[in-house]
Amino acid sequence: MRRVLDIVFPVALAAVILGSWEWTIFHWQVPHYVLPAPSAIARAICANFASLMASLGSTLAVTLQAFAAATLLGVATAIGFSQSRLLERTFYPYAVILQVTPVVAIAPLILIWVGFERINLALVIIATLVAFFPILAGATLGLKSADFNLLDLARLHGASRLQILWRIRLPTALPYLLSGMKTAGGLALIGAVVAEFVAGSGTATGLAWRIVESGNRLEIATLFAALALLALTGVLIFAALSLLEWALLRRWHESAISEAA
């Protein structure tokens, strides 16, 4: 019953909001280039379906590649940190600097260095930089959180560093890593959008560029359509990662075990 209500209430809210939105536009005769009605946005999606899907594919490809790269790099760096305090002390401050520097500010540089002829690579690098830190932070914290007594026990039985990493540290880190990945999934999408904005005309073909282009042409309904697709993509990424988290942790980690069970 609660499950059903979890779905019914948000859907009802959406219906109310979309309904009053539609009514307001109709009643006050709001111009479509200021705020289009939901029905106009739906028509824009239908009319531009093929090109919007191509744009979505482009943005999604950048997002997923960046997310994968950030996960690999973040976990690899965290493993390096866990094996050497010196490595961690030396490089962690720079990881923080990378995190706090607005990527929008360095995106033009990356575009110049990588070159507009390899625009996709540049977009992926920018989005990776945005998504990298939560994964590094989560994995680093997780790898450090192993039970000291368990580590002692493994050493007592002659475990190698690699065995300790694989059998104890990595499983311990999994909940922290997944939490970081959930944050990074959304950030990879934001990074892809920012990268497309910066890349500008003629080169990028993703949803963010469609937003810029539609804005310039005052095709506000198409702009909203692209925006809606972006939001939907973000929600789907989050849902997929939540599902992954649940599948991996549901049997043993407190965070994934429902209290009723």
Binding site: D147, N149, L150, L153, R167, I168, P171, L174, R251, W252, H253
Partner: peptide, 10 residues
């Protein structure tokens, strides 16, 4: 050990 010190995932 004083605590069971088991791997919770295993």
């Amino acid at each position: 050990f004083q605590e069971p010190t088991l791997m919770p995932w295993a």
